[in-house]
Amino acid sequence: MPTVTMTVNGRAVSGEAEPRTLLVQFLRDTLGLTGTHIGCDTSQCGACVVHLDGLSVKSCSMLAVQAEGAAVTTIEGLSNGELQPMQAAFREHHGLQCGFCTPGMVMSAIDLVNQNPTPSEHDIREWLDGNICRCTGYHNIVKAIKAGAEAMAAGGKR
């Protein structure tokens, strides 16, 4: 089996992976980072969103070998003891109910804010095309992302 090497949450990691191993399986099963979820089999739900070299991607629709040499950030890589501002905003604004979609929502939201530091409600709703939530009706997620963006702009950005 080939060995795959990448940087995950700032740490150099390597592990064995068959070519058909998905990045999400490598993160969850090989590295034990189970914060990244698998919510569908059709590349549509966004529960598995991580950052690959700074861009949000669906880790269920990528092979681990495609991430060779890349820098991956998962939900576990955001906080350093204290919640990252976007995470804190999701808690504060109750941007979740069951929580299953939340890691993907947060990772996706941070990519949005990195590209567009002051997103409007419309921008946020458009951006969430690839993140499905079955509980909240999105309303509080949108509020949380707006507040998270403001908090990141105010200096908590990472």
């Binding site: 690959l52 690839g130 993140n131």
Partner: peptide, 9 residues
């Protein structure tokens, strides 16, 4: 096309 994550790949 698709959603932001599809457009990123």
């Amino acid at each position: 096309i698709g959603d932001p994550q599809v457009r990123n790949r």
